[in-house]
C-alpha cells in the first residue's frame, strides 16, 4: 500500500509543477511596445494599424509588413510571418502576437477586431429588404 501512495503523491506533485511552470511560461501576456521591448518573451500587443505608413506583402520572404500604434501611441514596425490578415482594412483594432527583437515586432499571428456584429446586422437587414 505504502509505495503506491508515495508514487501517487509524487505523480500528482510532478503534474502540478509541470502544469504551473508551463502555464506561466506559455501565458501570452498583453502589454504595450515599451514593455514588450524589455520582456524578450512572446507577448501580445493591442493597437491600431497606422494607415499612412508603408504596408506591403513581401512575396520573397512571405512577410506582411505594417506599422502599428499601441495604446500609448508608440508606433512600431511589425513584421508578420504570413499573409495579410483577414479583415485588416475593416478592423477597428488589431492584436499582434510575437516577440520584440532588433527594433521590430516579429509577429507570428495578428488578430483583427471588427466592428460589432449587431450594428452590421441592422445595416444588412435594411439592405436585404
Amino acid at each position: 500500500m505504502k509505495p503506491k501512495i508515495v508514487i501517487g503523491v509524487l505523480v500528482i506533485m510532478a503534474g502540478v509543477i509541470l502544469g504551473s511552470v508551463s502555464f506561466l511560461e506559455s501565458n501570452v501576456e498583453y502589454m504595450d511596445f515599451a514593455a514588450a521591448e524589455k520582456s524578450h518573451k512572446k507577448v501580445q500587443v493591442k493597437g491600431e494599424w497606422v494607415k499612412n505608413h508603408e504596408s506591403r506583402f513581401d512575396a520573397e520572404k512571405a512577410q506582411f509588413v505594417f506599422y502599428m500604434k499601441d495604446d500609448n501611441n508608440r508606433v512600431e514596425k511589425v513584421i508578420l510571418e504570413g499573409a495579410k490578415p483577414n479583415n485588416f482594412e475593416l478592423a477597428t483594432s488589431v492584436v499582434a502576437k510575437g516577440v520584440y527583437r532588433e527594433g521590430y515586432f516579429h509577429a507570428t499571428d495578428v488578430l483583427t477586431k471588427c466592428p460589432s456584429k449587431y450594428e452590421g446586422d441592422a445595416e444588412a437587414v435594411k439592405q436585404s429588404l
Partner: peptide
C-alpha cells in the same frame, strides 16, 4: 489552458491566452 483567459482575468485583471506550446509541453 483553454480557460486561461478566465484564470488570468481573475488573477491579473487582464485576459490573456495560452501559447499552443503549453499544450505540447504539458
Amino acid at each position: 489552458g483553454t480557460s486561461s483567459p478566465i484564470i488570468t482575468t481573475i488573477a491579473k485583471g487582464k485576459a490573456s491566452a495560452m501559447d499552443i506550446a503549453y499544450y505540447v509541453k504539458t
